[in-house]
Design a protein around this nucleic acid. Structure first.
Lengths: 228, 228
DNA sequence: ACCTGAACACCGTTCAAGT
DNA sequence: ACCTGAACACCGTTCAAGT
């Protein structure tokens, strides 16, 4: 049997928030709803963010939430915007523009991976664009410093953004799905790999995503800027 | 009021399949379930693939489906596998290995974009790995021909796969989400872009994904193989 | 071996009614 | 202005019962 938690029974349940458990219930407002929703997502993932669970967490009726945030869609949108704003500022490191661009890529990836709930949120809402934002300014600056101009510079900025975000999204997928890739082996043994056992071995092994990313980012930037 | 369609009332409804509408109902089997599910996804998207809609489409009870395919999860898994198998074989074009790798990347992207329901499916199920498969063999061959060996060759193969699939996934996101990027402008006007009006203009404009992909793929491959 | 309806435990959202 | 319960239209899945 399903029932919504009443405010008065909040103490009895496995609540997510810690600060609010023992005190009085403050008046419900938009910020409180959003904070609680964010906490829920952070601790139990986006799929746990249902209007009913959120209401239980807040100790209110489900319908009260609607008065403050409209509906689930706009709640998620607001949550994404907030989390993006919370991302640390991304500052480049390294001597050459080339190094600094690679460092920006690496830092953006680290930052996004440190907020997996954000990626999941964006995932769910289809607003990947927002994940591009944090490095935008810095990338423009560095690409310009590297000597690229006009449309070509813009394209380089976008290429790096797409690579990083695409990579992070793919990584998240891989983490969700269990390993199971049956029959992949046979693809490699046939032709070329037979002559190159080290290649065959490398392809059979688990992907080292950190190294793969580092190599990809470096290669892309090298390709974009031309030989040093 | 919700009710499931009975076999006898199939003719009366807006069914998705065309071939089966007027005929007798063949005996329900696994393949029929999968075919109908695939058709549903192709025409109305993954989100339309509910067990109940599928049952209505088949003219059976919802529960009958479970006997043949287990549950929704395994139904989707099987659907993904099938669609991957249906993808056309991807053959490289061009004179140099470098050109052929770029061509493989481009063709994989085109192939995946031609099956948007596949991407959506994989999306939903978190099995991105499978989208890598179609080009695997060919990529290994070309990377080897380009002179890369061992772990380095393997990494190049993966880098290209990740780039293409990541790009396609991102593209799909962007298509789902309406344009709306408020306040992006101000990021560019400030610093560097002020000195480079062409850059500012390019950044303000919509992204030309085809050109961006072409440039990215070329840059990545150049970076991976080193200067020609 | 295959198909059924009923039931269970969930969803998001609307709405009239309360204070 | 804010909060409520009841209700609606959906979900996926299980299960005992039929043929």
């Amino acid at each position: 049997m399903y029932f919504t938690l009443r405010r008065s029974s909040l103490w009895a349940c496995n609540t997510v928030t810690t600060e609010r458990v023992k005190g009085e219930h403050p008046r419900l407002n938009r910020d409180l709803v959003l904070d609680t929703a964010a906490e829920l997502v952070k601790q139990q993932g986006v799929e746990a963010l249902t209007m009913r669970k959120l209401a239980a967490e807040l100790g209110t009726a489900v319908t009260s939430i609607y008065w403050h945030v409209g509906n689930r869609e706009s709640l998620l949108t607001e949550l994404v915007a907030r989390t993006v704003a919370e991302l640390g500022e991304i500052r480049p490191r390294g001597r050459t523009p080339r190094d600094r661009i690679v460092s920006l890529a690496r830092t953006l990836r680290r930052e996004l991976r440190a907020h997996p709930h954000l990626v999941a949120l964006v995932h769910e809402r289809g607003r990947t664009e927002q994940m591009f934002q944090p490095v935008a300014q810095a990338l423009v600056h560095e690409v310009h410093a590297a000597g690229l101009r006009g449309a070509r510079a813009a394209q380089a900025v976008r290429a790096v953004q797409f690579q990083v975000v695409g990579f992070v999204v793919l990584e998240r997928y891989r983490e969700r799905a269990p390993v199971q890739r049956p029959g992949e082996q046979e693809l490699w043994d046939a032709d070329t790999a037979g002559q190159d056992p080290a290649l065959a071995r490398a392809l059979a092994a688990e992907v080292d995503v950190d190294r793969l990313f580092a190599a990809s980012a470096r290669a892309l930037v090298d390709g974009l800027l031309g030989p040093a």
